[in-house]
């Protein structure tokens, strides 16, 4: 009796979702930064514009919550799943379950270590490439002059931090004039960036021995810029400042001449993802396995004030 009740309810639930608008489950990592908040806002807006019913789940930085959310989405029988994975490994099992239930999964922000047939596509930037773009800019900028670089790392162990570091090191590897003299973690936060930068300044002769700062994200760079100014240094001039993400406040710093360059990581990952899904629903088109977003370099010559105005209301 109970069993048949559950079964009929399950069928009911299934037919209900099939008849209404397409339901997409979105498992977001959490809300640890302004960039992340912007990604969530844009995903909601995109879904609303396209008439998609978005089921949102915040995992509060925990993979186990994301796996549980995915399982719940599968149990509810959603039509597709968007996953912004908190870490690169450990998704095989739950993705297999999604595949068995014939629910397409699209990864946002980054790729994962899993067989490629387990997901439909990944929309995101290549973090190694971002680091390379940043490193290449610095190589060109100093043009062979000796330069001591300090590095603000993201959260220890996060794949973005590891890969951006890798990319940057790759770009400067053949240029012995560039040397990373200090590298510490600022946990991707503004206050972390400020505190660590203060210690760099103390350790490197009041900051006079530092020629450039490479920060794994803009928030830390903004904190570091404050630290440099308070120490009487001139970021953007005495100390070249390059970072990644392109958030509005960093453009403001660039407009003020306090920062030099940033590499954009667009928070609009959902747009291309929904495009791919809609094409698939229409005629079964399979997208390529990796849709790489542009890692565009912005410097002071790219109208930072205008970029700030364009971005400030996007939910960063």
């Amino acid at each position: 009796m109970k069993k048949s009740l559950a079964l009929s309810l399950a069928l009911l639930g299934f037919s209900a979702t099939a008849s209404a608008a397409q339901v997409v489950g979105f498992s977001q990592i959490g809300s640890e930064s302004g960039w992340r908040a912007a990604e969530t806002t844009i995903t909601r807006k995109q879904a609303e514009q396209r008439g998609i019913d978005l089921k949102f789940s915040d995992a509060q930085q925990r993979q186990e919550n994301q796996i549980a959310a995915l399982r719940s989405f599968i149990a509810q029988g959603v039509d597709a799943i968007l996953l912004a994975p908190v870490v690169a490994t450990g998704w095989d099992n739950v993705l297999k379950e999604a595949k068995e239930s014939e629910i397409p999964v699209i990864l946002l922000d980054r790729q994962i270590d899993a067989p490629k047939d387990l997901y439909m596509t990944a929309v995101g930037a290549d973090s190694v490439h971002e680091g390379e773009v940043a490193g290449q800019w610095l190589v060109d900028k100093v043009a062979g002059k000796p330069c001591n670089v300090v590095e603000l790392q993201g959260t220890t162990g996060s794949s973005v931090a590891i890969e951006r570091k890798q990319g940057f090191e790759k770009a400067i590897a053949d240029h012995p004039n560039l040397k990373i003299v200090r590298s510490q973690t600022g946990d991707f936060t503004r206050s972390g960036g400020k505190e660590v930068m203060e210690s760099f300044i103390r350790a490197e002769n009041g900051g006079r021995d530092i020629c450039a700062l490479f920060s794994h994200n803009d928030d830390m760079a903004i904190g570091a810029i404050q630290a440099m100014k308070e120490a009487g240094l001139h970021p953007g001039k005495e100390i070249l400042t390059i970072s990644i993400d392109a958030v509005p406040d960093y453009f403001k710093a660039m407009a003020n001449g306090d920062a030099n360059a940033t590499v954009e990581l667009t928070p609009n990952m959902a747009g291309p993802a929904f495009d791919a899904l809609e094409a698939y629903w229409k005629d079964g088109t399979q997208p390529p396995k990796f849709i790489q977003t542009d890692s565009k370099l912005y410097t002071q010559s790219d109208d930072p004030e205008g970029e700030y105005q364009r971005r400030k209301d996007l939910g960063y």
Partner: peptide, 16 residues
Amino acid sequence: VFALYTGSGYPLATVG
């Protein structure tokens, strides 16, 4: 069990 659940090891896992 967590390793079986996720199939990986991650030093930042299960904070809190």
